[in-house]
């Protein structure tokens, strides 16, 4: 049986502050790879900011904002191999953009259009899961299956701090540990489950301590530090691929945006804290890091931004140009043999 390791409590960081805290680096990431991470973050940031605008214009439905979580998403997704699967929650709705999915597809999902129903196998990205934590067992099942088949693919599952209180998380994590399923459990601890603060969620001091009960390593990482997330995910994947089973990664951050476009967080959050966190947001931190290294120029930054904006512009145009869906499509994939009541209708 696995030895129970105490979880790491120190938060891992790579990016310095340009002042007293020195910059580190991740072995194996060259300049091109560093810029790939940058472009991925810019694409996600642009997608998110434009989506909030589109929502206010009535062009997409209620939207789950992920502003400030780009480091967690890009840092982890780019650490994956192509064959690895991603199991997103609604907060990672646009993760497909990092695997060649078009903004048109993701925007269509939020517009409630069937063009947003991607084929999971095509992108190795499972459907977006809205119920909290129910996709943790899915990811574990996939990973266990891959292991049984002798494949080297791993799974990465995203969930929030609130999900760690769910039974589905517990059962999934436990099962993963028992079966040594090659899965990375990535918890985006943004301190809020909608309006419920972490302090009203659990009395555990560190979410990474949840790992001890499963006998798996628990790691804490600065969720605003894309390189730290990349490194922690890479290590977890290497462990998983070597047959050592799952890892729990707690990416620590703070939600500086509403839960979704329907939420008014000013009723419950700490405005001063939000102000501070925004000043230290992940894309700006990485931007300054790359400039200190001499890897990023104004021109490259502008290019990345322009390219992302252009993709969004054509994405929304293409999504809006789609013909309205046939209402009957709702039933198309619901039954192999539709019941008589549906057939008659």
């Amino acid at each position: 049986m696995a030895q129970v390791l105490p979880a790491e409590h120190d938060v891992r960081r790579i990016i310095g502050d340009g002042d007293g805290v020195a910059d580190g680096e991740v072995e194996g990431l060259d300049d091109a790879a560093l810029l790939d991470l940058y472009r991925a973050m810019v694409l996600l940031r642009t997608y998110d900011e434009r989506s909030v605008v589109y929502h206010s214009q009535g062009r997409v439905g209620t939207y789950a904002i992920f502003w400030g979580h780009e480091a967690i998403q890009a840092g982890s997704a780019l650490a994956l191999a192509d064959e690895d699967w991603i199991f997103p929650s609604y907060r990672e709705s646009a993760i497909g953009l990092l695997r060649g999915m078009t903004p048109e597809t993701v925007l269509s999902w939020w517009r409630g259009h069937p063009a947003g129903w991607w084929n999971p196998r095509e992108f190795r990205i499972a459907s977006i899961t809205v119920p909290i934590a129910t996709h943790v067992p899915h990811a574990v099942g996939y990973a266990w299956g891959a292991r049984l088949k002798g494949e080297s693919a791993c799974a990465l599952v995203y969930f929030g701090d609130g999900a760690t209180s769910e039974g589905a998380f517990h059962e999934g994590a436990n099962f993963a540990a028992v079966m040594r399923a090659p899965v990375v459990l990535l918890c985006n601890n943004n301190q809020w489950a909608i309006s419920t603060p972490l302090s009203a969620q659990t009395r555990a001091e560190f979410l990474a301590d949840k790992a001890a009960g499963y006998g798996m390593p628990g790691v804490r990482v600065d969720g605003g530090d894309v390189l730290a997330v990349y490194q922690a995910t890479s290590e977890a994947l290497a462990r998983a691929r070597a047959g050592h089973g799952p890892t729990f990664v707690e990416a620590l951050t703070y939600r500086c945006a509403p839960h979704v476009t329907a939420d008014d967080p000013t009723a419950y959050w700490d405005a001063q804290r939000v102000e501070r966190e925004r000043e230290n947001e992940c894309l700006g931190r990485y931007d300054r890091y790359l400039r200190r290294l001499g890897v990023l120029s104004d021109e490259l930054a502008e290019d990345a931004r322009d390219d992302a904006l252009e993709r969004m512009k054509s994405g929304i145009a293409a999504a809006e140009a789609l013909p309205p869906p046939d209402p009957e499509v709702v039933f198309a994939s619901a039954y192999v043999d539709p019941p008589p009541t549906l057939r008659e209708g």
Partner: peptide, 19 residues
């Protein structure tokens, strides 16, 4: 237990809750 419990020392489960 070796097929359904990933840990030897069951009391470790309490750590997840600070209990």
């Amino acid at each position: 237990a070796k097929q359904h419990l990933p840990i030897e020392d069951m009391t470790k489960r309490a750590e997840a809750y600070g209990m």
